[in-house]
């Protein structure tokens, strides 16, 4: 489980205020919100790339402040893929395994299995600059998954893709979630993507988490007027 407890952070002009959020283990949790509301920063806080100014982050009930990013067991997929441009696809995917000094055969086997599953075996000798957006996305996913992370963080992984590739990758992401059984935290501003992929959706507006629930509850039965306005639906009025 990942828990953010009253987390605040200021980064230049941008700030997150008093964010509290619980993400149960094994869920496909999507953080949905307009651009510039701090969705990516939440992922980077969970990954340990930033330390909160206030508040605590717990990963499996352990205070994350004590765990460095390299020891958190996290895979990260960025919107711009962030592939290492000086390494070919194979070396990009094998990067984490080589750091762990695993035997060469073991690395080859792990990379081979994953590239086959994602249909990118034929790209292994190519460099990132020569790949299409969809191909780069698969390589980026493979690089994160090869270490079998317990948490997979994805920052708008499908936003730069054409509709067909997006649809294909959506199916792949669902399959990957089912296969690896890891907790996925996905960030997007695309309602359809959130509805299609997620088991839980959290709405973030103005640097604060406004609502968390299943896609059905959030999209069809929102009681928060701000959330309803963001989603373009009428809020459900509850009577005491």
């Amino acid at each position: 489980m990942i828990a953010l407890k009253n987390v605040s952070i200021s980064l230049g002009d941008f700030s997150l205020k008093d964010v509290s959020l619980e993400i149960p283990a094994g869920e496909f949790f999507t953080i949905l919100g307009p651009t510039g509301t701090g969705k990516t920063v939440i992922l980077e806080l969970i990954a340990g790339l930033y330390q909160p100014d206030n508040g605590r982050i717990l990963i499996d009930n352990e205070d994350a402040a004590q765990i460095t990013p390299e020891k958190r067991g996290i895979g990260f997929v960025y919107q711009d893929y962030a592939l290492f441009p000086h390494l070919n696809v194979y070396k990009n995917i094998a990067f984490g395994l080589q750091l762990r000094k695993l035997p060469k055969e073991e690395i080859q086997k792990a990379v081979g299995e994953l590239t086959e599953m994602l249909g990118i075996t034929h790209l292994c000798h190519r460099y990132p600059g020569t790949l299409s957006g969809g191909e780069q996305q698969r390589v980026s996913l493979a690089r994160a998954l090869v270490l079998k992370p317990k948490i997979l963080l994805m920052d708008e992984p499908l936003s730069a893709l054409d509709p067909n590739t997006k649809k294909l990758l959506c199916q792949e992401l669902k399959r990957i979630h089912a296969t690896y059984q890891c907790t996925v935290v996905n960030v997007t501003h695309d309602f359809n993507e959130a509805g299609m992929l997620s088991t839980l959706v959290g709405i973030i507006l103005d640097g604060q988490v406004r609502q968390v629930g299943s896609p059905d509850v959030v999209f069809n039965h929102s009681i928060d007027p701000k959330v309803a306005s963001f989603l373009g639906i009428a809020p459900k009025v509850t009577y005491a």
Partner: peptide, 18 residues
């Protein structure tokens, strides 16, 4: 150099020096 490459390297197991 895109600083996100450093971030990614950290999540893959690198210390800041690595």
């Amino acid at each position: 150099v895109n600083p996100r490459l450093d971030f990614i390297a950290r999540t893959l197991g690198c210390t800041p020096t690595q």
